[in-house]
Design a protein around this nucleic acid. Structure first.
Lengths: 122, 122
DNA sequence: GGTCGTTATGTTTCGCGAAACATATGGACC
DNA sequence: GGTCCATATGTTTCGCGAAACATAACGACC
């Protein structure tokens, strides 16, 4: 239900030193961009604020320039937004996803075709 | 040390129903092919026999035809080998990896270039 | 200066997958 | 029939990341 019916390929880009970017970070970036808030983004993906916050910390620490700019206090309490670097990383990640899905499509289909049909009457 | 210094892209192919193929299963298949044994393959990747065995169970259950053929007893106690289906799934998975790495290379490099240099004197 | 909502961070509790441990079974071979 | 080694499974223990809980700080606005 909340699970998208047909996610095909999940991929993470792994650099040394435990630094990596995967679906979780990408979705978080996207939601921060859309909501303007770390906590709202976290809520949207049913993730605790703390976890969302620590992912942001990780990303900001991993890159030369922070991906997420945060402001504290103010009328609305504060907020967060993607920096140009954040936008760039997100869009590159989506591009990798798209390119990989397309490039791998034939072989994915081949494996898919070998799966047992489970039209279970559950 | 046992970690390859520069793993680039880790990907898993996700089908519905919790069925998926990722780096772990692929490596396991490969090692079973090379060693002729589930337990030897498990040892090679520092994985308990039980875990290796249950991954094999999973895979054999997920596909129409088993990917791993096992024999029990005998002079050497038994063994395991890849079926044609197993060889096929493995080779398709490697093909997806290769295609994805190539197709995503430019964007991967772009993100890589934005990383902070961590020439830490640790 | 009180309100408000968000960011910021520390501490504690907890669930669950993984590991560890324990056995049983099969069968070729001598 | 005993040996050997790998497959086959069940049971228990355990570590660790995640969640839960708890506060503090910030600052525009009224």
């Amino acid at each position: 239900m909340s699970e998208p019916t047909d996610p095909r390929l999940r991929l993470r880009v792994v650099f040394g030193d435990g630094r990596m970017v995967g679906p979780g970070k990408a979705d978080l970036l996207e939601l921060i961009r859309d909501t303007g808030s770390i906590s709202a983004a976290g809520r949207a993906m049913r993730m605790s604020y703390k976890r969302a916050w620590s992912l942001v910390e990780e990303m900001n620490a991993a890159f030369r320039e922070p991906l997420v700019a945060r402001t504290r206090g103010g009328a609305q309490g504060g907020g967060a937004a993607l920096t140009a670097a954040g936008e760039a990383v997100l869009s590159h990640y989506r591009a990798i996803e798209a390119a990989a899905a397309e490039a791998g499509a034939p072989d994915i289909a081949a494996i898919r075709g070998m799966l047992r049909d489970i039209s279970d009457g559950k």
